[in-house]
Design a protein around this nucleic acid. Structure first.
Lengths: 253, 253
DNA sequence: AGTCCCGAAAGTTTCGAAAATCCGTTTACA
DNA sequence: TGTAAACGGATTTTCGAAACTTTCGGGACT
């Protein structure tokens, strides 16, 4: 029972391990998990562009790890739909298209409303507190313009995700939450493109959403999030250049 | 994503030493993919039992492959929800519980009806032909009793999956199909338990379903599949011993 | 010119061993 | 006698290299 696992004391009070990332409080899976997270973030933020070929040589240098570890991370990304692999031809970043965005957004409407409704019904004080907190952090930044630096966009993306996650945190259906999370990540790729290109501003839908959720108004909150998702799609469709209905023209020079 | 291809694979043959398979037309990923498929099937059929620890030593012997390959396959299974992994404690088969079955079945009702309705609306002649064909193969076997040999149960499971896949094959939403497929595989674990333990017989719901789909009756077909899924849950809940609401009692012998 | 074949180069896949980690047991000490 | 550190065996995790596959380009033949 006793989970006191006392480390064999090494003398140094502050473990000054300079070699690897020192931010390990509860290291998940160490190297593999770390590489996976970084890589996912890079795909979501289009640092690794859609359809880009992922060669092991470059990746090994970029993330400073071995082939085996990379392979495991890539394998994960494939089953999340963020990468593709074919026969003996290695891996590549999953393509994007308006069709794909439309498809996944339709499913998102269902899963977000389903999880949100359930979360509201099972909401607790701690849940409300986290919503308030994460909204505060989100609003403090304000949606970045295309001209803002990448680091700001990344930070906003993180806070945006945290806010939406907090809304559905008390949902009682693990499977619904799981798929919602995967689809949300998928949508983030398109959100990133919108952030880069779109100049139009939408009104603060997050505030409305927060208040509706805190008021426990299921119908209103679900309606708002549906409008939120659909609005994002329309904005991307009209303002992101090159996001046509079919981006699958495999032009070979 | 794209592993919804329902090719008529013969698989499951012990071709360990059969060096050159006859002109592999569809060789997917050779070793890794092969191990992954075998392992998934073993988990679905409870040859690897829920909560069972998956040690590399045993697995290496069972599947005749290396640690790295196993790791990649296990990694896949984790993101499909068929296995778990924790810190530095290796992998284990995902647990099962009635709660889990109820949760995933509720989501299945939505995804199956959604994909089925869309598939019917976009049905083609080839789609109908495959439905007729796969139903024929399914009905030829008849649902196995608990006393039937494992090989028969496995074959029935394959044909059952192929039939249900054929129904939704023309659905136009890749994401819906993807999640439907994952949930269907999850449900197969519980179907297997039911096949092993349940002795009650249900009427031939597959025939009704087939005819409703071929008649392009969306409402009827969706109603039938909903009843089909819910009926399976009830049968499992009442006839599978040990499938209680909480199976998470961590009894250590 | 066009087509086919063959060899070299680039890249991917698989493997087993070395390093790191965990768990149960023993041992030291109050 | 009880607590906690140290030890040893077992297991996991990571890595780089060997084996294999695909791609590309030159040269001979139609």
């Amino acid at each position: 029972m006793g989970k006191i696992l006392t480390m064999p004391f090494d003398g140094s009070k502050e473990s000054a391990t300079a070699t690897t990332a020192p931010q390990d409080v509860s290291r998940e899976d160490a190297a593999t998990f770390d590489v996976l997270r970084k890589m996912r973030e890079d795909i979501l933020c289009c640092a690794l562009k859609p359809d880009q070929r992922l060669r092991f040589g470059e990746l090994r240098q970029r993330y400073g790890t071995s082939v085996g570890t990379l392979r495991e991370a890539l394998s994960h990304l494939v089953s999340e739909g963020l990468a593709r692999t074919e026969a003996g031809r290695g891996f590549q970043v999953a393509p994007i298209s308006l069709n794909d965005f439309l498809d996944l957004s339709e499913l998102r409407v269902y899963l977000e409303t389903r999880t949100l409704a359930d979360a509201i019904r099972h909401g607790t004080d701690a849940w409300e507190a986290e919503i308030v907190s994460s909204y505060f952090l989100l609003s403090k930044l304000g949606k970045p313009s295309p001209d803002d630096p990448v680091s700001l966009k990344r930070e906003w993306g993180k806070r945006h995700k945290r806010f939406h996650d907090s809304l559905v945190a008390t949902c009682t259906s693990p499977w619904s939450l799981h798929f919602r999370s995967e689809l949300f990540d998928q949508a983030r790729r398109y959100h990133w493109l919108t952030m880069i290109h779109a100049r139009s501003r939408r009104k603060n839908e997050h505030l409305e959403l927060r208040d509706a959720v805190l008021a426990r108004d299921v119908a209103l909150a679900c309606g708002l999030i549906e409008k939120h998702i659909r609005g994002t799609v329309e904005q991307a469709a009209s303002e992101v250049p090159g996001l046509t209905l079919e981006m699958t023209k495999r032009k070979k020079a």
